[in-house]
Simulated assay, not measured.
Amino acid sequence: MDTNSTAFEASARSNSLADKPIRLAVIIGSNREGRYAPVIADWFLSRAESFGGLDIDVVDVAEIDLPTTFSSQPSDTVQAEQAKVAERLAAADAFVVITPEYNHSYPAGLKNLIDWHNAEWHAKPVGFVSYGGLSGGLRAVEHLRQIFAELHAVTVRDTVSFHGPWGQFDEDGQHTSPEECDTAAKSLLDRLTWWAHALRDARSVRPFSA
């Protein structure tokens, strides 16, 4: 094997990816009636769009119809829905999960979305934006870290968490004291995109095998 040629090809692949936007899937993890998730999601999406270099796809569990009962022979409708969502997740280079905290953990609809997929999460970074009461949703995030570790994903240390967000946003969805949370969002996106570039380059050279 010509090691110089192999190294050159790997470098060329890496350089060809460097200028491509990071494909970011933003997962809205709540499907409850009256949910506050759209306010948090709109706030984060505006920051992600301003950050630049991202091709963003919003995956909302409230718009996905996957059953909670798993079958070895799912119906054609279920297979079609799963395939459609799987294609979007597989196309992503990175994920940001927006989650509330329900009973010290994350929502059932979010777990269902995660469990219907596997390889789509492999060797990709995951960031978190959480909200809730005094904990700011951080207990939900800690549980999600364990789940994504099992799925060979890399979770980012930096998070954004809103403690009691219901009084923090005005009627137009704008945060009334944005400096701290804007800084947190930038830190999250800085770390997430670093990992997204690094892991995308790595997968192009050596496909991940679980």
Score class of each variant (00 low, 15 high):
3 T>S: 15
3 T>W: 14
8 F>M: 13
12 A>L: 13
12 A>H: 05
13 R>S: 08
16 S>K: 14
19 D>A: 13
25 A>P: 01
25 A>W: 00
30 S>W: 04
32 R>D: 03
36 Y>K: 08
38 P>G: 09
40 I>L: 10
41 A>P: 00
43 W>C: 09
46 S>L: 09
48 A>Q: 07
50 S>Y: 05
51 F>R: 09
52 G>W: 09
54 L>R: 13
54 L>I: 14
58 V>F: 02
61 V>A: 11
61 V>F: 10
68 T>S: 11
70 F>D: 12
72 S>R: 14
72 S>D: 15
73 Q>I: 09
73 Q>G: 04
74 P>W: 01
75 S>W: 02
77 T>M: 11
77 T>Y: 00
79 Q>R: 13
81 E>Y: 03
84 K>H: 08
85 V>H: 01
86 A>F: 08
88 R>H: 01
93 D>P: 08
95 F>I: 01
98 I>H: 03
104 H>P: 03
108 A>P: 04
109 G>M: 08
112 N>S: 14
113 L>M: 05
115 D>S: 07
115 D>W: 10
116 W>K: 00
128 F>R: 07
132 G>S: 11
133 G>C: 05
136 G>K: 06
136 G>S: 10
142 E>Q: 10
143 H>D: 12
147 I>K: 04
147 I>P: 09
148 F>W: 00
148 F>V: 02
151 L>F: 11
157 R>H: 13
169 F>C: 09
170 D>W: 14
172 D>H: 13
177 S>E: 15
178 P>Q: 10
180 E>S: 08
180 E>D: 07
182 D>T: 01
189 L>S: 09
190 D>P: 00
191 R>C: 08
192 L>I: 02
195 W>L: 10
198 A>G: 09
198 A>E: 12
206 R>D: 12
207 P>K: 06
210 A>M: 08
